[in-house]
């Protein structure tokens, strides 16, 4: 009975993966093995599907992590200034050391994302504890301010085109083999969060409970910040901003199966991957053969779900 959500989401996910491999601008026959089909599959469809799975799963898990760090359900990795800070770091490297290799850029983006997340956590700690809704507002404002700085620097340095791909709604149409592999690192970071699931679950019970159980909440905080920052930085840099996945999916999973993170993180990951895949598929078929970016679709789906979460009756029953 415990495994049911996982089995169910696994089944749905498999169907979505098959559909994702089959749908696109080029029409191919999934059963065939002619060179053209293989080329499309291996160079475009498979990388794209993998990129979607990794991004969706990693963002949703990062959402669980940041929600337990700030003990607030209304935040996600995309509403904490993390992605914008990553873009700022990347922009700084691009301006200061244009020839830096890719791994240096990634480290810079991740470090900047970490600084942004730390700033968010510092602000949250100063907010009146009872005002649950102020936390997401602070995060959104912080995102706006950092995003404004990025846009301005990019404007002045004539790099706006370059920056736009990170800050605009994310899309996967440009994903081909060789251009998405960094997302595996994001996936690994999410896996790390799963290994530490109990620690995050205890942390969200409060500092006192954590101390009472002999757990250093600072250490867990740091680990969580690393996970959230690395995931956000790599996603923003590779495919752009993907809104709402990290916010909506953990909420829905918690509503169904609670916050025993060791059990729920795999379901959260599958749910994030599934939602992203479904939205991307929708974007591919709605205006075939053109594509609508998955970020746009998610902006609509995610904000409707978020509004529902805001106004639903409390779960007391």
């Amino acid at each position: 009975m415990k495994a049911r959500p996982l089995v169910l989401s696994g089944l749905v996910l498999s169907a979505l993966i098959l559909a994702s491999l089959g749908v696109g601008a080029a029409s191919i026959d999934l059963g065939g093995s002619d060179p053209w089909t293989m080329l499309v599959l291996m160079q475009s469809r498979l990388p794209r599907t993998l990129a979607l799975l990794l991004t969706g799963a990693a963002l949703a898990v990062a959402g669980v992590v940041i929600q337990s760090l700030v003990r607030n359900r209304f935040v996600g990795p995309d509403t904490a200034g993390t992605g914008e800070s990553a873009a700022l770091g990347l922009l700084a490297v691009t301006l200061l050391a244009p020839a830096a290799p890719i791994w240096v850029r990634m480290i810079a983006a991740s470090l900047a994302a970490m600084a942004g997340t730390a700033l968010f956590l510092a602000i949250v700690r100063r907010l009146p504890a009872r005002e649950v809704m102020l936390v997401p507002i602070a995060g959104l404002i912080l995102s706006g301010i950092v995003g404004g700085v990025v846009t301005w620097i990019a404007w002045e340095a004539d790099l706006l085109q370059f920056v736009a791909t990170w800050l605009m709604s994310g899309e996967f149409s440009g994903v081909i083999a060789g251009r998405y592999e960094l997302l595996w690192v994001a996936g690994l970071a999410a896996l790390l969060a799963w290994f530490a699931a109990d620690r995050f679950a205890i942390l969200s019970l409060g500092d006192e409970v954590a101390t009472g159980l002999g757990l250093s909440s600072r250490g867990v905080m740091r680990l969580g910040m690393v996970v959230v920052s690395v995931v956000s930085a790599l996603v923003v840099v590779t495919v752009g901003m993907i809104p709402f996945i990290g916010l909506v999916v953990p909420n829905i999973v918690a509503r169904i199966m609670g916050d025993n993170l060791r059990a729920s993180i795999p379901v959260v990951a599958a749910g994030g991957a599934g939602l992203l895949l479904a939205c991307d598929l929708l974007g591919r078929v709605l205006r075939h053969p053109y594509e609508i970016p998955v970020g746009t679709i998610l902006g609509i789906v995610g904000s409707v779900v978020f509004l529902w979460l805001l106004y639903r009756p409390a779960s007391h029953g």
Partner: peptide, 29 residues
């Protein structure tokens, strides 16, 4: 701190927790 957690257990004045846990899961922690 981890060693002390084997010698003493603490219950503070609890605030409402935001986590959605089952009773058995909480006690399990």
């Amino acid at each position: 701190s981890a060693r002390l957690a084997l010698a003493m257990a603490v219950m503070g004045q609890q605030a409402r927790i935001a986590s959605r846990l089952r009773v058995g899961e909480l006690v399990g922690f």
